[in-house]
């Protein structure tokens, strides 16, 4: 398994600022996007992204290439930081707090208003956190099942179960937008 980031992480671990900047350029947008999709809040997502990279800077010297790909590792740090923040939030059911657009309007009107785009984002946001992470990693971030399972720290079977439940919920919630 060749990790395209291994050399950059090694150089970062010995204080190479240019290598650190390259890692930031390569991974910060995806880390930020994943955190934004998990948390639904840009400011919090920025804090998570900063926290994630701080962990990278602190642990880069001890990072072992070959154990896991850097991308897998950084996604795992990001998701754990997101889970921590979600746990600290007021205990409310996300389904109740995040408005999903009214499914009653006609399909034409929905298409015109680009409501489906908003609806899918809101429906993903409303999934339970583990299902949300599984759907985002596999379907949006383009991770394979093995990599996504590794990031989530679960078996591939458990990941598939999360994906099945998450997708079923999404199909149910978005049925008003079907062709």
């Amino acid at each position: 398994m060749i990790d395209p980031d291994a050399e950059l992480v090694r150089r970062t671990g010995v204080g190479d600022k240019a290598a650190a900047a390259q890692l930031v350029a390569r991974h910060l947008p995806r880390v930020l996007t994943l955190a934004r999709r998990m948390l639904g809040d840009t400011a919090e997502a920025e804090d998570v992204a900063q926290e994630t990279f701080l962990k990278v800077w602190t642990h880069s010297r001890r990072w072992q290439p070959g154990a896991a790909r850097f991308e897998t590792w950084i996604y795992r740090i990001t998701l754990n930081a997101c889970y921590d923040r979600l746990r600290k939030r007021r205990p409310a059911r996300l389904d109740d707090t995040i408005p999903i657009p009214d499914p009653s309007p006609s399909p034409e009107r929905i298409a015109a208003a680009n409501a489906a785009g908003l609806a899918i984002a809101a429906a993903v946001q409303a999934l339970p956190e583990r299902q949300r992470a599984a759907v985002l990693l596999c379907t949006v971030e383009g991770c394979g099942n093995i990599e996504a399972a590794e990031i989530l720290g679960i078996s591939v079977e458990a990941l598939e179960s999360l994906l099945t439940r998450g997708r079923r919920t999404l199909r149910e919630r978005l049925k008003a937008y079907r062709d």
Partner: peptide
């Protein structure tokens, strides 16, 4: 109503891929 098809859900989710957040 019948629920959304798998293929259409995939199309919807694919639309999310375009929305990568640019870091400030």
């Amino acid at each position: 109503e019948p629920i959304l098809s798998e293929a259409q859900l995939d199309r919807f989710l694919a639309s999310l891929r375009a929305g990568e957040v640019a870091p400030s």
